[in-house]
């Protein structure tokens, strides 16, 4: 099978990679680019663990073929914290409020929630609880019962608004 050459922007950097046409974007990110933050919980678009932003829209990377990323702008959880650092100072407010609010237990769903929540707050800086719940309804978490996730998103929204 001949592999396709794909060029795109990933977390702000020009990136290129090769992938079989039938490879999912999720597999390409994880196996070709070493970005294992996005997880495969189902492979069928039902759990949101693989969520990435494609041109700012939440996308299940397991449902997209790698070649469809051609020319697109991708953001994964690895691109959420600003700057090079992985230290507390550089964390996105969502990452910080998730930590402080204990919004993760096992943490396998966390990358998907963070990415989906960022997309929500980018479009709607002051969502109601119900808007948050519906925006995140495509992301499954089996550990937390969602309570602390919702509260952490609410808190991050407050912080982001006051930083503006």
């Amino acid at each position: 099978m001949s592999r396709t050459h794909i060029t795109c922007t990933v977390n702000g950097e020009d990136t290129d990679f090769l992938a079989n046409p039938g490879t999912s974007l999720l597999d390409a990110l994880r196996d070709e680019l070493g970005l294992t933050g996005a997880k495969e919980g189902c492979g069928t678009g039902d759990c949101g663990a693989c969520s990435v932003l494609m041109d700012g829209k939440v996308t299940c990377a397991c449902l997209v073929f790698a070649p469809e990323a051609q020319g697109r702008n991708l953001l994964t959880v690895e691109g959420l914290s600003s700057g090079a650092g992985i230290s507390g100072d550089h964390l996105h407010p969502l990452q910080q409020t998730f930590l402080e609010g204990a919004a993760l237990q096992c943490g396998v769903c966390t990358p998907g929630f963070l990415v989906a929540a960022k997309a929500l707050l980018d479009h709607n800086p002051d969502p109601t609880e119900s808007e948050i719940r519906y925006a995140l309804a495509g992301n499954l978490c089996r550990c937390t019962g969602y309570d602390k996730i919702i509260r952490s998103v609410q808190e991050a929204a407050v912080q982001l608004r006051s930083a503006k």
Partner: peptide, 8 residues
């Protein structure tokens, strides 16, 4: 927690 929120 830190590694878990940055995808590491």
């Amino acid at each position: 927690g830190y590694d878990k929120v940055v995808g590491k």
